[in-house]
Every structure is written in C-alpha cells, then in structure tokens.
Amino acid sequence: MGLMTNVEREEEWDRWMRAAIAGDNRAYHRFLTALTPHLRTIARRRCSQLGLPPSEAEDVVQEVLLAIHLKRSSWDPARPLRPWISAIVRNKLVDILRRRGRHIDVPLEDVVAVLESEGRADSTDRIDVEHILSRLGDPQRTIVHSISIEGTSVRETAARLKMTEVAVRVSLHRALKSLATFYRSENA
C-alpha cells in the first residue's frame, strides 16, 4: 500500500474520532471496527512471542479497546490521533502482559508499524468473559446485554427499561469502567 492511502486512513481515523467525541455513535463504531484488526495483529504477535495461547490475544484486544475508550479524554484533537493510539496501545500492552507475569519490551515503532499496515486478522470469540458480565449489578448488566448482544441503541434501551437516556448513558459508562477494573483484577 502506498503512502497516500496511509495518510488518508490516518486522516479518516482523526475525523472519525473527532466526530465520535462530539457524539457520533456511527463514526465511533466505524473507527473502532477499523482499529480492531490492527490491535489483534499486535496482540497475537506478542502473545505468541510469549507462549500465551491465541485466545488470550482477544482478551488483550478487548482490554486495549476499553483503555482507548476510557482514556479518549486524554487525546488532544489538535494533535494527530496515531501517535496517541500507538502510545496507549504500547503502554497498555506492557501493563497487561506484566500482570500476566510476562515482562516484555514493546518498541513503540512496532506498534506504529502495525497500525500503519493493512490489518486483516479475524476475531476469535471469547465466551468466558460472560462471567465478568455477571459481576455487574443491575441495571448495568441489563443495559450492557441489551446494547452489546441484542444491538439496541441507548434510546431503545432507555424506552425498554423505562429509564431516561441520560441515566442509561451514565449507567453504561459506569459499566465500562467496571469492566476495565474487572479485567485488571482478573489477571492481577
């Protein structure tokens, strides 16, 4: 792939993220979907290097996604997104693998290189994370289940649960924070 496509994609990611922060769910979905195969490539490479099963890699991908999500407040929209993502992914990766008892040096350039490459790694399903979901209280669990498994929007979920949209949003955000904490304590 030539240089132009790479630059174009970088600009596209920047645009999506800016729209996402302003509240565009679809742009955010597109961005995360585009980013994930790259994360998967990075995670699999590191896991196989460390002799961890490939299934672990998907957990790593999910935890990195959560970190990007919960820390997107630290991106300065005046700066390009790519260096921010690379640093977050690298730091989180080192942190996650350290918690699994593996000390590893992840050069930032490697992460940058994979983000710039064409990512095509497909998902492997992780089912045993269900028990993490079960640790959420209600209404968080219902909201998470409704949006993630059944694919409803916040508005539909609010109507179904007879809650306000704001309450659903707050609850969803808390649930995501809890998920990140659970991940951290799972492999502490």
Binding site: A20, I21, A22, G23, D24, N25, R26, A27, Y28, H29, L32, T33, T36, E58, V61, Q62, L65, L66, H69, R72, S73, S74, D76, S123, D125, R126, V129, E130, I132, L133, V144, I147, S148, I149, G151, S153, V154, R169, L172, H173, L176
Partner: peptide
C-alpha cells in the same frame, strides 16, 4: 463477550463529557 459486541457497547458511549485540557 465478542469483541464486536464490545465495540457496539463502546460506540453507544461515544460522546465525551470531559476533556483532559478543560479539566486541567
């Protein structure tokens, strides 16, 4: 949870209410 499901979840929490620069 599948990663795609997680993405759907995150996408619904897209809007950002507090930025680091403003908070600082």
């Amino acid at each position: 949870m599948k990663t795609d499901d997680l993405i759907a979840l995150l996408a619904q929490d897209a809007p950002l209410t507090a930025r680091l620069g403003d908070r600082l």
